[in-house]
């Protein structure tokens, strides 16, 4: 056994159950620093739950999660989160810049209002996602892809080391998808670890270097070339997937 460097994310024996049926069963996952990992699996496989369990948003029945060798509570500042776009009310009375600045609330702490510095960070993040022209736009007037980019910008201002993203490609057009992928790959080049819940099996090999196949249990995880095999996919999707390997 080799003594490995610190893992960015280390999930051990994680089991989560909402009612009697387990949503995640005895899941292990090791994510090394600096990889771009996608979690794929059928509907109801527990992908979102896994992300939420890593973030401490759902309480596991058993198991353990470490971020760089420490529990999440101790490493919050290192983690950025992009929730599913549909989980918030986009008719909330606020604008784009304000939402992005929410990413600084954790670092700001109690009682302090966001100021000039937060505004500048938010502007930089909006430029990175190509939304700098929309700062004062009311959020209900954004398209799906624009909403997604606002959420990405909010995660960027968290200035995290590990990013967890729940379906950032859902309902976005091809151009936005490419822009997001480029952004994710830039994050990886900077040594960040990015974990993405993903649905489109066709693009896994193009976009990501690591993959985790999940269906309540972990089927496999590792570098795409070794892990993203027809056998593993059949196990994950129960043989219902007609997948053509390139």
């Amino acid at each position: 056994m080799q003594a490995s460097e610190a893992k960015a994310i280390e999930v051990t024996d994680l089991t989560v159950a909402y009612q009697e049926q387990p949503v995640l069963w005895d899941v292990d996952l090791d994510v090394p620093p600096g990889v771009l990992l996608s979690i794929v699996g059928p509907n109801g496989a527990g992908k979102t739950t896994l992300i939420k369990a890593i973030l401490g948003l759902v309480r596991p029945a058993a198991g353990n999660v470490l971020i760089y060798d420490k529990p999440y509570e101790a490493q919050r500042r290192m983690v950025g989160y992009v929730p599913q776009r549909g989980t918030v009310d986009w008719d909330f009375p606020t604008n784009v810049l304000d939402v992005v600045m929410m990413g600084r609330y954790g670092a700001l702490g109690w009682m302090r209002r966001p100021g000039k510095q937060e505004r500048e960070l938010a502007m930089q993040a909006l430029e990175k996602v190509g939304m700098e022209a929309y700062t004062t736009r009311q959020i209900s007037q954004l398209s799906g892809g624009q909403q997604q980019r606002v959420f990405l910008a909010r995660a960027l201002v968290q200035d995290a080391t590990v990013y967890l993203m729940d379906e950032p490609f859902q309902g976005v057009d091809a151009t936005t998808e490419r822009a997001i992928v480029t952004l994710l790959q830039e994050l990886r080049e900077k040594g960040k670890t990015v974990v993405v819940v993903h649905h489109d099996l066709q693009t896994v090999t193009d976009y990501f270097d690591w993959v985790m196949l999940l269906n309540i249990r972990r089927i496999a995880s590792g570098p795409v070339a070794e892990t993203f095999t027809p056998e593993n996919l059949r196990t994950t999707y129960g043989g219902r997937v007609a997948f053509i390997t390139k």
């Binding site: 401490g56 909330f92 609330y105 909010r154």
Partner: peptide
């Protein structure tokens, strides 16, 4: 933040 995005608020601690 609680009212707009509870999950994100929780992730910030």
């Amino acid at each position: 933040l609680l009212v707009f995005d509870e999950g994100f608020a929780a992730s910030l601690g």
